[in-house]
Design a protein around this nucleic acid. Sequence first.
DNA 1: GTAATAGTGTCTTTCAGACAGTATTCA
DNA 2: TGAATACTGTCTGAAAGACACTATTAC
Lengths: 216, 216
Amino acid sequence: MALSDFPRPSVAVDVAVLTVCDDTLQVVTVESQFGTALPGTFLHEGERLRDAAARALSTKAGIDGLDFHQVGMFDDPRRDDRGWVLSMAHVAAIAYESLPDVGLIPLESGFPTVGLAFDHSQMVALAVDDLRRRYSDQAEPSSMLGEAFTLLELRRLYEAIFDRELPKDTFRRQVIDGLVGTGETTSAGGGRPAELYRRKPDAQLPRTAAALFRGP
Amino acid sequence: MALSDFPRPSVAVDVAVLTVCDDTLQVVTVESQFGTALPGTFLHEGERLRDAAARALSTKAGIDGLDFHQVGMFDDPRRDDRGWVLSMAHVAAIAYESLPDVGLIPLESGFPTVGLAFDHSQMVALAVDDLRRRYSDQAEPSSMLGEAFTLLELRRLYEAIFDRELPKDTFRRQVIDGLVGTGETTSAGGGRPAELYRRKPDAQLPRTAAALFRGP
DNA sequence: GTAATAGTGTCTTTCAGACAGTATTCA
DNA sequence: TGAATACTGTCTGAAAGACACTATTAC
């Protein structure tokens, strides 16, 4: 049997890069002829989707070295005026301090506060869902903080991701087993120095952590 | 800007249809020249992925009317000897009683007990993950039982999906608010007649239900 | 009656969440 | 010393999970 004789779609990738700035989730955007949009590109021959996503991010936003997760294929035949284009939405996360000078749009309870081109606002909503799921399962799985961080920094990150204040003592008990303490401390806060922690690889958070993060 | 001048991949869909038979999750398979595989097809021009999935299932397995969820795009350039073929894996669920005469393969803790063609075994593993996530969020969201069902039937279904015995009283308290009782009962079990329930649309299960289903 | 299954009241243990206490730094 | 922040012991209320009891059918 020969390969499909049907016309083939163009396949693209778009990437929602999420970061936290000013205690708020934000998404990286680029300016294009179609307006403010997510970084994206067409898939090259023989290329894998995640490699196309990395190439788009490197070329259009100067960002490298991130992990990508698929969040959904957008396949409305009329989603792009230029023709039949399927696009795989991806999500990645990065520490704000590692970001070059790029456009950022804050997210209000998971949705962009301004409209993005194409169906990119829907992509961002799915990206936030996926990020929240992964942050419910593990402690800081995507390096949105630096190499080491205090529990206060971690809690502020989770409060931004889940758009919700979290009690510090319960939060600590939920995440502490997913972390390893370095012996070091930092006194950047002004008061008693806080211990610095790293993520414990492959450690799962307790099943009840999701209930705390997502609220009642 | 003209549309991409790059060569385009063929795009296909494959569907993991899950059902429960003999207290075990099973997946629908078809025989092809490549061996035992998931039902699939190439995407037609202008067609949406979910419509291609429905067409594949209707044509190759005689199954209609299901809901499909994307679980991931498989994009290894060498995954199909015939050429460059991307395939979107889908998941759907169906009551065993609604199945026509098709091939079924039982799943051992989420994985097929025999190898499937291509990367279809990986697709099934992702499909089971997705099914478990959706059954953790809502009570019986995919109609794997009939229109109405008893709590015993529902619990047996969840035990098969999560491959784990569940205590009947705690299970009841977790799911009861996601159901609506019909006034009717059935005495098919032999003992005291059991009330028949339906799914309450849009009702979310408590956050702690996932902890019960997935276990320690 | 017995057997079988459905459904529920209750007890205990556990833990989320709140509160307040102690600990350690800087000014 | 006081202010600020980090961390932790303890209390309470709620609920998971276990257990047993009652309820309703068939035989």
